[in-house]
Amino acid sequence: MKILAIEDQKLILLSVEKRLTELGYEVRTASDGQSGIDLFEAYKPDLVLVDINMPDMSGLQVVKHIRFFKESKTPILIMSGNTTEQVIMDGFTLGIDDYMKKPVSLDEMVARIKRIIGTPENNKKNLLEQPDAQMLQKNCVGVVIPCYNEEERLLSDEFKDFAHKNLGYHLCFVNDGSTDNTLEVLQKLQQTNPDNISIYNCEQNGGKAEAVRQGVQHLIKDEQFDYIGFLDADLSTDFRDFDDLVKTIENSDFKIVSGSRIARMGANITKESARKIISTTINLIIQTILGMPFKDTQCGAKVMDRDIAVKMFEQKFITKWLFDVEIFMRMKRYYGKNEAIKLICEQPLKRWIHADGSKLSMKDSVKIVGQLFEIAVDYRKWSF
């Protein structure tokens, strides 16, 4: 049984192709609508699996070509993050056989395909034997994870499990000139899932700000990423909360969604007492400098629209640690204060745990105050 999968996001396409091939289907893929149409005519598939939102030619245009220009009755299954009711109705009006809304599990996708065209005779795997549900995400998200001497703290199993289960996320680990075995640990982690995990290696240590900037610029080159974010290697903010940040930006007009460690009822937010006092003091200074009502700019979990990432990470940051503050300052200077406030969402985390082994000492905290004033003076000169 032959399936043609048409999808512009490589991470999704590779995952779909792998699962269907394992189950005995013969699969061909196309990354855009026109290529899909050309392949349809030559390949003559038993089923077409197509996305809606693709550049140049939409999935609905592909459906229209197959149904009306080719007058083909080949079953068509749409799998898309577009949940607009009118789009779904238009699909059925054009003659599709089914419509799946992302996020959706690979298991559900396979079950719907089996319902339409059956199971291959050379089926190698039983759907019910799959040990866990792998989810195809609504959008593709690139996540930068800066690492400096994280050999002892890197939670490889958590990263490996997340990349395996959440298809559409790509984890880019930036090794910031580590002097221990961090790079070797990352290389072993990458081998477990090379399609969804990559390494960007910096020969020399440049600080967290530059490591994240280099990672973001690396991911920006890949056009499949709708959103780009960053996360601390110690997972003090865990993947459940990060995924919530992504869901917020997907379903809103915000351009940046930033995690916030502000304590609230029902949230598990823990800090060392001394760090809490210092953090509160620094946050008050930051709020004064920004002149915007954000309570926790320094949380190491943020996700943003790719176009915003291009603008915010184009130029080097002036500090090694306070690039989060600089991002807010750049948004304010680029869009104006009122518009920046509308474009940034500060979302409280459900859980955040301070991890042992922080690279910042008490002495560093004193330096931070001086760097904040440096930011306040320097960004007055900026023009975009």
Score class of each variant (00 low, 15 high):
residue 27 V to H: 10
residue 24 G to Y: 11
residue 45 P to N: 07
residue 48 V to C: 00
residue 30 A to N: 05
residue 50 V to I: 02
residue 34 Q to M: 13
residue 22 E to M: 15
residue 48 V to Y: 02
residue 30 A to W: 05
residue 20 L to I: 14
residue 32 D to P: 04
residue 25 Y to M: 14
residue 44 K to Q: 10
residue 46 D to Q: 09
residue 39 L to I: 09
residue 42 A to P: 01
residue 33 G to R: 04
residue 29 T to M: 10
residue 49 L to R: 00
residue 37 I to D: 04
residue 24 G to M: 14
residue 44 K to Y: 06
residue 48 V to H: 00
residue 30 A to H: 05
residue 48 V to F: 03
residue 31 S to I: 09
residue 27 V to Q: 11
residue 32 D to A: 07
residue 34 Q to Y: 10
residue 36 G to M: 05
residue 24 G to K: 12
residue 20 L to N: 13
residue 30 A to K: 03
residue 43 Y to E: 04
residue 46 D to I: 07
residue 31 S to L: 10
residue 51 D to V: 04
residue 24 G to N: 15
residue 23 L to Q: 13
residue 32 D to W: 10
residue 26 E to A: 14
residue 42 A to V: 07
residue 31 S to P: 03
residue 21 T to R: 13
residue 42 A to T: 08
residue 26 E to L: 15
residue 34 Q to A: 11
residue 35 S to I: 06
residue 50 V to H: 00
residue 48 V to A: 01
residue 21 T to N: 13
residue 46 D to F: 08
residue 21 T to E: 13
residue 38 D to M: 07
residue 35 S to A: 11
residue 50 V to D: 01
residue 39 L to A: 08
residue 28 R to N: 12
residue 48 V to I: 08
residue 44 K to P: 01
residue 49 L to D: 00
residue 45 P to G: 06
residue 31 S to C: 09
residue 42 A to L: 08
residue 24 G to L: 14
residue 38 D to F: 08
residue 38 D to R: 06
residue 51 D to N: 08
residue 46 D to L: 09
residue 37 I to L: 11
residue 51 D to S: 01
residue 22 E to S: 15
residue 37 I to G: 05
residue 35 S to H: 09
residue 37 I to Y: 07
residue 20 L to P: 14
residue 31 S to Y: 09
residue 24 G to D: 13
residue 36 G to V: 03
residue 23 L to E: 15
residue 41 E to T: 04
residue 51 D to L: 02
residue 34 Q to R: 11
residue 27 V to P: 11
residue 22 E to G: 13
residue 36 G to T: 04
residue 47 L to W: 04
residue 24 G to R: 14
residue 36 G to F: 03
residue 47 L to S: 07
residue 45 P to T: 06
residue 20 L to D: 12
residue 37 I to T: 06
residue 38 D to I: 04
residue 34 Q to H: 09
residue 23 L to N: 15
residue 33 G to F: 03
residue 43 Y to R: 01
residue 40 F to K: 02
residue 44 K to T: 06
residue 50 V to Y: 00
residue 36 G to K: 02
residue 42 A to G: 04
residue 43 Y to C: 07
residue 26 E to D: 15
residue 50 V to L: 02
residue 33 G to C: 02
residue 51 D to I: 02
residue 50 V to S: 05
residue 27 V to E: 09
residue 48 V to G: 00
residue 27 V to C: 12
residue 44 K to G: 01
residue 28 R to L: 12
residue 26 E to K: 15
residue 45 P to E: 03
residue 20 L to A: 13
residue 39 L to Y: 00
residue 30 A to E: 03
residue 46 D to A: 12
residue 24 G to V: 14
residue 41 E to Q: 07
residue 33 G to I: 07
residue 29 T to F: 04
residue 44 K to E: 11
residue 29 T to R: 10
residue 48 V to R: 02
residue 32 D to S: 10
residue 43 Y to K: 04
residue 47 L to G: 04
residue 44 K to R: 10
residue 49 L to H: 00
residue 28 R to P: 08
residue 49 L to S: 02
residue 26 E to C: 14
residue 36 G to P: 05
residue 46 D to M: 08
residue 40 F to M: 01
residue 47 L to T: 07
